[in-house]
Amino acid sequence: MDVIIESLPQYWDGFLRTLFLAVVSGIIALIFGTLLAAARVSPIAALRGFSMAYVEIVRNTPLTIAFFFAAVVLPRLGVTFQQFEVAAIIALSAYTSAFIAEAVRSGVNSVPIGQAEAARSIGMKFSQVLSLIILPQALRTVIPPLINILIALVKNSSVAGAFYVLELFGYGKQLANEHGDAVMSVLIGVAFFYLLITVPLGYLATVVERKVAIAR
């Protein structure tokens, strides 16, 4: 266990980077995913088609492919980054937003149709019906699945460790190489720091869910 104490600075640095990747990607994915869900229910066929294709392709391919795209293919197309973190954030938010979109869409479907009819009947445009009436109710009902997706995002960010980003898992690999006799302890340390993010997220879900629940 000494190795964990000894390597606390590395763990802490990795922890902060993991947290940074998760928070930034999470925010981008929540916004982009909600837009994708909105596009999916919009009256414009082209938007519906784009959203459906995006979700189907991204959701059904491995995250590693998204990382390869962001870290290897994009630079060859002329999109270069100073830091690999940027590529990691692109890959993670592109990947996660597909799942967010599906969750939000299921939330939209759970809002009774009468809510939209009432909103339309007082003269609201589609964009108002969606942003003022449907989405606020839909998002509240999908908080548990959204938090699940965000927890998965935190863990998925470990793939960035394989793409030269020194986050928790990246340090974990490094430390395991340096301390070949204490790999077990090193990994327990890594797991502990992931739990430090994911367990509170789960609790947050319960608290937020209770707070924003809508009585019908």
């Binding site: 009774p112 009468g114 809510q115 009819e117 009432a118 909103a119 339309r120 009947s121 007082i122 003269g123 609201m124 445009k125 009436i133 606020p136 109710q137 509240r140 809508i214 009585a215 019908r216």
Partner: peptide, 20 residues
């Protein structure tokens, strides 16, 4: 259509008040 609907009030069987 939205403009015209604003001139036509509608009351539903299931009230449909905005729940939030």
């Amino acid at each position: 259509l939205a403009k015209l609907r604003a001139d036509v009030g509608m009351v539903f069987q299931s009230f449909n008040l905005f729940a939030h």
